[in-house]
Amino acid sequence: MFEARLNASNVLKKVLDAIKDLLNEATFDCSDSGIQLQAMDNSHVSLVSLSLRSDGFDKYRCDRNLSMGMNLANMAKIMKCANNDDTLTMKAQDNADTVTFMFESQNQEKVSDYEMKLMNLDQEHLGIPETDYACVVRMPAMEFARICRDLSQFGESVVISCTKEGVKFSASGDAGSANIKLAQTSTIDKEDESVIIEMQEPVTLTFACRYLNSFTKATPLCNQVQLSMSADVPL
């Protein structure tokens, strides 16, 4: 028996929004410690690695390890039917071929349930290797999303140059060029708003806007984003 409850459906909506443009389908591996998802995106150039720890749920029970292959577009259709503040319960029996999503309104007067067929997906064992990165930048997630969006207008790729003093984002194309420099925050009064750089050696790397913009779909999940960079290694 698997059962996971969140007091606000909004949390899972945000998680789903963060991955549904990158993945058509994915396996949610449920165990006692929580739910793990790891999958290459549809074009096989980036890895989505997601961990929902059991203690992040308001109620969590998983008697036996369970792999639930889900079509994320169908899951999104179901999640769209929930109000943000509805309580969400995901349920599946052991060896089941369906998962149930139940939404309860705050006043308990509306209860809806949706059943979705599970899929058998090829499982690959993937992961982000432990790496000592040349530069690690922590910055406001909203600011990063804004920069990616703004620079996408000027080119298909963004160059990120990081030194001890700051980080520079650049793009260029037919319309011209654009540069955005962020200095490291001098005093950390508000941690959420700070730009912090840990640098072993400076790096200059180029990334496709398309992917950066996909990654920033996760922005509502956290106030800060961490960019870990080394030469010849994925961001």
């Binding site: 993937l126 992961g127 290797p129």
Partner: peptide, 14 residues
């Protein structure tokens, strides 16, 4: 695509 293969290998040999 060579880059694509390189990236896949990177994540597989974790």
């Amino acid at each position: 695509d060579v880059d694509q293969l390189k990236i896949e290998q990177y994540y597989k040999f974790n």
